[in-house]
């Protein structure tokens, strides 16, 4: 009988070693992130802010390689400045390195931001900028340009002649104010366009519908933030004769059913991505690539709905 050769023994030993070592399981290695980031979202909607959150989380794994640990906080109440301030204060007490928030001119909120800044925490604004705040980064749409763009599209659609009502979110949100400014400036080029009233829905569908129905002397509606288009797309299955034309932001569901005529879509996921990219850049270089990072917007109508929504 032939006795086992050298090769047989090597194979045997490797097999046994493999079997033994494979049973040891994954070794837990300790990681020590040097940068703690707290992201405070104002709203857990089913579109806009969730997309931003997804954009952030998409790059979370990549950020971890740079020692960046991102934690997302969402208040119980939508756009509740008091609750957001409380969360912000918790982050100040926890001495995190970065806070990422939506710009909000609420006094308590700004005060807390200032306290954070004073403690050496870095402040990043997304979606809405507080341009007067010291040493900060803004990532989001150029809201003035966005308002101007939707004004141009509206003028084109109404042939430069319409009585316009605007429903915005809440007062004190500079992004919405900037959009309104842009819209107004665009309208100046068309004398037939007349702004009849500006209303606020407080980011709430019920309030929006109240305002929607309360408008008396306007035939064209512009919703300056996503709540309007989102609510309308769920309330109506076709064009509502109350208004000749409706324009909105962010939520495109009402376009195929002719509930809305056109939507200015912000690349929200890109906002989330860019926030993380700039954090990585800061960790690596000690500064942002630019203090204002504007993300893309595009106008979607029924004609380009498919292509526009796919983007």
């Amino acid at each position: 009988m032939k006795t086992p050769g050298k090769k047989t023994w090597i194979v045997l030993v490797v097999l046994i070693a493999g079997l033994v070592l494979s049973g040891c399981g994954k070794q837990v290695t300790a990681e020590h992130p040097v940068t703690r980031v707290s992201v405070i979202l104002p709203h857990s909607d089913d579109g806009y802010w969730v997309n931003i959150k997804n954009g952030i989380e998409e790059k979370q794994e990549e950020a971890a390689k740079y020692g960046i640990d991102i934690k997302v906080f969402i208040p119980q109440l939508n756009y509740n400045a008091s609750e957001m301030t409380d969360i912000l204060k918790q982050q100040i007490a926890a001495r995190t390195d970065f806070v990422v928030v939506q710009g909000n001119e609420d006094e308590g909120f700004v005060q807390a931001l200032q306290e954070a800044h004073d403690q050496g925490m870095k402040v990043v604004f997304m979606d809405t900028d507080l341009s007067d705040f010291p040493e900060h980064l803004y990532v989001g749409t150029d809201n003035y340009k966005a308002g101007y763009l939707i004004g141009e599209q509206m003028a084109e659609k109404t042939n430069g002649k319409a009585d316009i009502a605007v429903i915005s979110g809440s007062p004190g949100y500079p992004n919405l104010e900037e959009r309104l400014e842009g819209l107004k400036d665009a309208m100046k080029n068309y004398p037939g366009l007349s702004l009849k009233e500006v209303l606020y829905d407080n980011y709430d569908g019920l309030t929006f519908m109240k305002r929607y129905e309360s408008v008396q002397d306007a035939d064209t509606l512009v919703c300056l933030e996503g709540t309007g288009a989102q609510t309308l797309s769920r309330m109506f299955s076709g064009h509502d004769s109350r208004y000749r034309h409706i324009f909105g932001f962010d939520i495109t569901d009402g376009i195929p059913t002719d509930v809305v005529d056109g939507i200015l879509v912000q690349d929200t996921k890109e906002i989330g991505n860019q926030v993380v990219t700039q954090l990585e850049h800061y960790v690596q270089t000690g500064k942002y690539s630019n203090n204002k990072i504007y993300t893309d917007v595009h106008y979607v109508t029924k004609d380009n709905y498919k292509a526009g929504t796919e983007e």
Binding site: V28, A30, E31, H32, P33, R36, D69, K71, Q90, A93, A94, R95, T96
Partner: peptide
Amino acid sequence: QQKKRYLRETADLSSTIETY
């Protein structure tokens, strides 16, 4: 514990206690 297995919550807790 952080040296063994990093946890954001632990870091936040520790820092908040320190603030306290």
